[in-house]
Design a protein around this nucleic acid. Structure first.
Lengths: 98, 98
DNA sequence: TATATATTTCGATAGTTATCAAATTATTTA
DNA sequence: TAAATAATTTGATAACTATCGAAATATATA
């Protein structure tokens, strides 16, 4: 269920430039490929963003805790996917459509 | 212009439960009254939320810095109004509509 | 099995911030 | 003008967090 506490947590997850960039990278890669098989590989993102792997790991956990993404290990790699529904719910709370 | 830095700042402004509550109070009061004269009086909010006036003042400044609200002094009182357009812009950045 | 690669955990640090009490400023009203 | 009300500023503190390097773990591959 969505409430202000949960919503604040979601916004917090998106409140840091690097972490927001990370989320957009994950959400963006997802939408640019229609194949379900072409998810976002974290190892590629680490190269693109200018922060170390430990920090990426930390950020991923926060995005995951906020239900903004899901992650899945595929062999040696980590695959991330964006949860559009979480974003939709929190936007509804803001009542932007009224 | 909207970019990730600006967007992160907006999300940060909404990332604290009390401040989000404050924003929703401002945005909510606004929509419940159609008269432009019936804005949201801060003095009423201070009674409703469980935090002191200095903290409210601090939060208002952050919401204002993020362009989420505008404030105006009316005599002894402060009046707040929500900026819907800022919210719309940041939602567009998230690409939820694609 | 030994090495290489990908990610996470740990420990530490520097910077940020939500909150309050006290004092101050702005405005109205008695 | 004096007192009351509304809001802000100041100064302090406790809690949080983004980041890193180093070490540990997981997995694949030579």
């Amino acid at each position: 269920m969505m409430n202000t506490t949960k919503a604040a947590k979601i916004f917090k997850a998106l409140s840091h430039p690097n972490r927001l960039e990370l989320y957009l990278e994950i959400a963006g890669n997802q939408e640019s490929n229609f194949e379900p098989g072409e998810e976002c590989l974290i190892t590629d993102i680490i190269g693109a963003l200018n922060i170390g792997a430990p920090t990426i790991s930390h950020h991923l956990k926060e995005l995951s805790n906020a239900d903004l993404i899901t992650t899945e290990r595929r062999g040696k790699f980590l695959v991330a996917r964006a949860n559009r529904s979480t974003l939709l719910e929190v936007i509804q709370l803001l009542g932007i459509d009224r």
